[in-house]
Design a protein around this nucleic acid. Structure first.
Ligand SMILES: NC(=O)c1ccc[n+]([C@@H]2O[C@H](COP(=O)([O-])OP(=O)(O)OC[C@H]3O[C@@H](n4cnc5c(N)ncnc54)[C@H](O)[C@@H]3O)[C@@H](O)[C@H]2O)c1
Ligand SMILES: NC(=O)c1ccc[n+]([C@@H]2O[C@H](COP(=O)([O-])OP(=O)(O)OC[C@H]3O[C@@H](n4cnc5c(N)ncnc54)[C@H](O)[C@@H]3O)[C@@H](O)[C@H]2O)c1
Lengths: 229, 229
DNA sequence: AGTATTTCGATATTTTTATAGCGATTAAGG
DNA sequence: CCTTAATCGCTATAAAAATATCGAAATACT
């Protein structure tokens, strides 16, 4: 199995989102050119990304929407469902538990876990929440290999270690903590700070750019004014 | 103002997270080498990233933790706070409203908005939620330029357009919808699907790799067995 | 004081990723 | 049936990012 570049993997769901739309509208073919227009990704990049999923297109027509969906989904392993446990059923954790979209993306959150006795034992959006001490046992028994980490930042490292000891192979980490784990363990961070950093900086850059243009046009105006004098 | 590469911007908060820890522990200097070890980023890359923030280090010693924090924070514009409006106070939206960490990162969510009359008018984690029809007015009056988008996917495009008309310059988009907006508008996606895609694929790759190794060791065992015979 | 050692930071190289160019392919229209 | 036009997908080039190299600077130790 070839290793697909991260950036390609991150673009594939974007294409999928559009493809679902097309299928819904009854459109049955789509060209890479059009996908490029809609995503802002370069035409040739779209072709490369699509090629990596192993599907072939039809010249002059493009790709069959259904084929492309199948190909991307199976490439991302979104067709057969994987079970996952979520640890830390707080604000963020419970909003994830109730988010049905993940099921369509191959992720089945089968249970939540929390140390807080007032949360443990309850149902959150139809998903059962267990006390934390049941984690290791259930994890091994149910052969769950994906852990979703939404505990407070200062609990993240310890909780992650517990997960790994219990047989978790991949951690979807929503905390800002940089986990230090065994090499083999897959850690995927959903780093909102990183995203916020890009937003903040780009906005600053934009402000400055705009104010410079303002100054320019002001200066220009001054020049014109001066010329008038 | 130089344009800092996206990937650098995304790493900066990681360094910051560690730096806050060091400061807390009373450590007052840190080397790029050590940061590299902890983040898994290459030593020279860390140096480049740091250099882009404009701070200079001391040979043999490294960097003053405080200076580095200041430098990164001001580079990301996390020192003076920007006001933001959040639209769509549902599961995800309300969890974001209550998340105090954003304040420390220069983002002040000053109000939420929702079309649902049972949500609008209430306080969520101390933040007031207005009915949606007040958005344009308040946005202009309070000169808010950042919008956080957490409405259902099918409402995302329309809501984003409303935001832009009301003076929003940057949208932090938590929906899976690919927004089609004016060139100048900054859109930063928090794409959980993208992250999930990487996790899923990497896990598949790992499974296959492991099972191949299993086969190998089985074959090896067989070979040994055969040799024994 | 002098030397060894560590780290910075500038420059060079390599690798990865993105873009461009172009022939091959195929459906559609005359 | 043949031309036309659009698209695929391969190969080549360009750009960006990551990694390596190395001299200079500064601390700590002899
Ligand atoms: N709320 C957000 O919008 C948001 C955004 C980005 C990142 N995060 C991160 O997500 C994590 C959770 O944030 P939150 O706002 O949901 O916090 P929260 O306090 O609302 O929820 C944390 C939950 O984890 C439980 N918990 C605490 N220690 C535990 C342990 N050792 N084992 C199992 N469960 C434990 C608590 O009982 C609580 O229910 C934090 O690391 C936060 O930084 C949150
Ligand atoms: N819940 C999650 O964990 C999660 C994870 C990833 C992405 N998302 C995305 O975030 C968005 C919100 O998800 P959610 O689970 O919080 O949904 P939700 O249904 O719980 O909340 C949506 C909120 O938006 C409000 N709303 C609907 N239309 C609106 C409009 N036109 N203007 C203003 N408000 C409007 C609704 O009243 C509701 O309160 C979705 O696009 C979803 O795909 C959610």
């Amino acid at each position: 199995m070839i290793s697909i570049p991260v950036l390609t993997l991150k673009r594939l769901p974007q294409y999928l989102e559009l493809l679902y739309g097309f299928e819904h509208e009854g459109q049955d073919t789509i060209s890479a050119t059009r996908l490029a227009e809609l995503t802002g990704v370069h035409m040739t990049q779209v072709r490369k990304d699509i090629a990596l999923t192993g599907v072939v297109g039809i010249p002059k027509v493009g790709h069959k929407v259904r084929d492309l969906i199948e190909s991307i989904e199976s490439c991302l392993n979104w067709k057969d469902h994987s079970s996952a446990f979520l640890v830390g059923v707080g604000r963020l954790g419970s909003s994830l538990l109730g988010y049905s979209e993940f099921k369509r993306k191959g992720l089945n959150i089968v249970a939540g876990f929390d140390t807080d006795p007032s949360v443990a034992g309850s149902l959150v959006d139809g998903v059962i929440v267990h006390p934390m001490d049941k984690f290791a046992n259930l994890c091994r028994r149910m052969k769950v290999h994906i852990g979703i980490l939404t505990v407070p930042a200062d609990q993240a490292q310890a909780t992650a270690e517990l997960m790994v000891e219990s047989g978790i192979l991949a951690i979807w980490n929503f905390t800002p903590t940089l986990l230090q784990l065994d090499e083999g363990i897959i850690v995927e961070d959903v780093d909102m700070s990183a995203s916020l950093a890009v937003l903040s900086r780009r906005l600053s850059e934009k402000y400055e750019q705009d104010s410079q243009q303002d100054n320019k046009s002001k200066n220009k105006k001054n020049t014109i004014d001066q010329e008038k004098q």
